[in-house]
Design a binder for these strands. Structure first.
Length: 277
DNA sequence: CAGATAACCTGCGTGC
DNA sequence: TGCACGCAGGTTATCT
């Protein structure tokens, strides 16, 4: 269920805990996931050192020494957690633990995903840019490439609801359902507005708040709405900052109007009918 | 082509 | 308690 801030928080945790560690073995649980991991997975990564942890959109990229990288997507229900050496191995959950990476310091990195919408793929590094998963992704919302002019160009002539536009990974990579609602609340724009009908000033506000909200969420290690936990088992503190998501029927913190929940593109979308036009 | 919808899969909370 | 139902933070194939 993670969006960009949750994946980035995970990246930062792994950067501190597993970079420099060598994979000494793997254990396979249920599988398959949304895509095949690769053939010969275990033998191919045994003995490889994890050199770097990167991120692109909601994808995590574990850089190994040699030519391979491991691409990870958490889907709706995935998690990648560290288990230390005294974690009882009988607690390996064959139903939802799909892959366990055993590291040379005795810890284990476990990919768990009940709904199996996630992806773990071993690919060669040079193939990364052409990879089906990464190919069509839009700019990183925290990069210079994402700005008001760019967003205006993307919105021009489009009839989709603005919320769908900013959740479209080809337009901007990393915004999901929670942060889309939060961004539009801060920008004062209703989620149902047609993208092509937005005024320049509204586009400017949306483009401005996307990185602001995402950065704030990263600083707070993401959002725990239901049961999301970061890789160290801690809930994300951005939950306390949510202005509209999950607050249907509750009062807007700014004007006390009752927050509404409407379906936009089959997804729950929360907004304040007074603060958002 | 853009846009809308269905599908993928499982768990959990709710209401009867 | 049991059960049917709706809903979930994502992506993508397939329709119109």
């Amino acid at each position: 269920m993670p969006e960009l801030p949750e994946v980035e928080s995970l990246r930062q945790i792994l950067e501190r805990s597993v970079v420099g560690r060598t994979i000494v073995g793997t254990r396979i649980g249920r599988l398959p996931l949304r895509r095949k991991v690769t053939t010969n997975f275990g033998p191919r990564i045994r003995g490889r050192r994890i050199d770097k942890i990167g991120r692109r959109a909601k994808y995590l990229i574990l850089d190994l020494d040699g030519e391979d990288v491991i691409l990870v997507h958490l889907g709706m229900s995935g998690s990648l957690t560290c288990r230390d050496r005294d974690f009882d191995s009988s607690e390996f959950d064959r139903r939802h633990d799909h892959i366990e990476f055993r590291l040379d310091d005795g810890t284990r990195l476990v990919f768990n995903d009940p709904r199996r919408f996630g992806i773990v793929r071993l690919v060669v590094r040079i193939a990364l840019p052409d990879l089906h998963e990464l190919k069509g992704l839009g700019p990183e919302p925290l990069s210079e490439a994402f700005n008001a002019d760019y967003l205006a160009a993307q919105a021009r002539g489009r009839k989709v609801a603005v919320k769908n536009l900013i959740m479209d990974q080809r337009v901007v990579a990393g915004v999901g359902n929670i942060y889309a609602s939060e961004v539009l609340y801060r920008a004062g724009v209703r989620p149902t507005r047609r993208a092509g009908r937005l005024k320049r000033e509204e586009i400017v506000r949306i483009a401005k708040f996307i990185p602001i909200i995402l950065r704030d969420a990263i600083d707070r290690r993401g959002t725990t709405f239901r049961n999301y936990r970061d890789s160290e088992g801690r809930p994300g503190a951005f939950a306390d900052r949510l202005q509209v998501y999950g607050r249907a029927g509750e009062k807007c913190y700014r004007c006390s109007t009752s927050i509404r929940n409407v379906l936009v593109g089959q997804r729950a979308s929360f907004y304040c009918p007074t603060c958002q036009k």
